[in-house]
Nucleic acid binder design. Sequence first.
DNA 1: AAGCTGAGGGAAATCGCTTCCCAATCTATC
DNA 2: GATAGATTGGGAAGCGATTTCCCTCAGCTT
Lengths: 314, 314
Amino acid sequence: MLNGSTRKVAESYRERVETAAEKLGYTANLSAQATARGTAAIVALLVADIADPYFGQLASGVARGADEAGLVVTIAITERDPQREVKLVRALRGQRPRGLILAASRVEGPDAVGLQGELEAFSNMGGRVVVVGPGGGTARSVAVDNRGGSAALGAELARLGYRDAIVVAASEGIRTSDDRLEGFTEGFTAAGGSVREVRRTGFTRDAGYTATSELLEDDVPAGTLIFGISDVVAIGIMSAVRDAGRQVGADIAVAGFDDIATGRDIRPGLTTVRVPLEDLGYRALQAATDPEWAAAEPQLPLEVIVRGSTPPRS
Amino acid sequence: MLNGSTRKVAESYRERVETAAEKLGYTANLSAQATARGTAAIVALLVADIADPYFGQLASGVARGADEAGLVVTIAITERDPQREVKLVRALRGQRPRGLILAASRVEGPDAVGLQGELEAFSNMGGRVVVVGPGGGTARSVAVDNRGGSAALGAELARLGYRDAIVVAASEGIRTSDDRLEGFTEGFTAAGGSVREVRRTGFTRDAGYTATSELLEDDVPAGTLIFGISDVVAIGIMSAVRDAGRQVGADIAVAGFDDIATGRDIRPGLTTVRVPLEDLGYRALQAATDPEWAAAEPQLPLEVIVRGSTPPRS
DNA sequence: AAGCTGAGGGAAATCGCTTCCCAATCTATC
DNA sequence: GATAGATTGGGAAGCGATTTCCCTCAGCTT
């Protein structure tokens, strides 16, 4: 009754009790509270890898929102393993969190069979599931216009004079990657370019590095553009380009997607599509807590940012 | 009794119950468990900013360890505000976590008055407090030899021919910064260099950028070395150097500390001291959970890494 | 056959809190 | 000044586990 239930208590008492509690160092036992109420003041966040700046920035937004809402954030790392993800969701469910935010998961496709079931169970228990990216089922989703953004990027790059591109993407079936790939191809070809090759790997820096190293063993003409499916991948690409003795920019141009902080500090700067990652996380949290969330503004505004990694070709 | 109490049950039964539970989608209510047991299977992690790669990598190690130990990680962001930090510790205490890991906090000094009290209360409740960095009081600590590492760095840089350095540090009283500053000065001067100026700001990229921009308004001779108290700061420094029309490397050399992932991908590469951040987090978790932890190997091994940002001066 | 041991069932107490119900007190209205 | 209505506060039940204690039953030993 100390923690804002329906009971009304005289203000004077309340204050007295509160200062006493303060002095004694008393803190309400959240677990007991959760037991009694049936739900805990917790939001669970699932990310692939918290050391990845993409997820770091996202988590930052989630944490901010949670703080404002008086919730605690619990974090779990999927390591991009669908099996693990299912297990984690199940384990997290034991906490009876108010919401569950899934960043970086394939909610669809063959890998997702177990997941869907878990998510439903979670929903049925009264928790809210939010998917960052294209959602499905009972889940709310906070999406980014990957397709539109990369189409715009492709168009812009073609306008800068690029005609020949290679895309380093993640495996087929991963929606974010597929959307970005399709969008880019669309925008780039519509404006006169053509995608010569698509390389399938993963979402990591090392994936980008390795793929590009292999790519550059063959003869890649100067003026080729390599589009990395995310900034993290693109950064790997840039390093590989350099390590192969080529130059980033006029020689081999590189572009990414997300606009993580690092992309602004490397030289040449990384051309990319700005995704308001922190906001995205913040809105995911809103979606997880706000009872009358209505998928308003389904897409966050994106913006193509051209930097030195793709200088205009004359 | 389903979750490992003293009771002994035949394995066969146990299995049967477990698969049944699996099928029904039952999950033990962790809150109830925590209420009954008096402590939750949770470790709380306090970081200044989860979007900062330093904390990201650290958190990554913590998360890995927690996963292995069957614990859930709860994360809270201090935003480098001591007041906030106290409040958070207090709030987190309500969860009755097994351990509390403090990364990036001043456990000492005038700001820490409230903190110490909270930490003690936490300890008295049976939770274990781990400080990443120089600890104090009841807290266990997982430390890094900041002083020795930066002394080695300073010595190495002097050996490379640098004689004139500026240090961009955090405010006085922040132990990590002070130790690194002292160590560097020691090592650098002992080997023939001299620290011309110390600039006090913060631990962020922008702090480094701003401080350096101001610095470069005056005439800074070519061949000067700027040491950023952490890699994040150093990256800000590099950007500022470039934006001021100077060159990183032969013109103005830059070094940092931590060896965050980004430092390997920027060009020129950032000279720094490698801190095994992930391990550090992992060990912090060990310290928080292992009952017979004995501060073994009090310091993790550090290593000076010279890259292109500090080319040898002939 | 009696006695001992250990496995396992069942009931009850406990954890710290919320929530519901009811009696007691206070206030406003006629 | 009496009565209905609104407030306040006390008490008990319940939340979903864990833990402890007691008891039964079967298998062995002597």
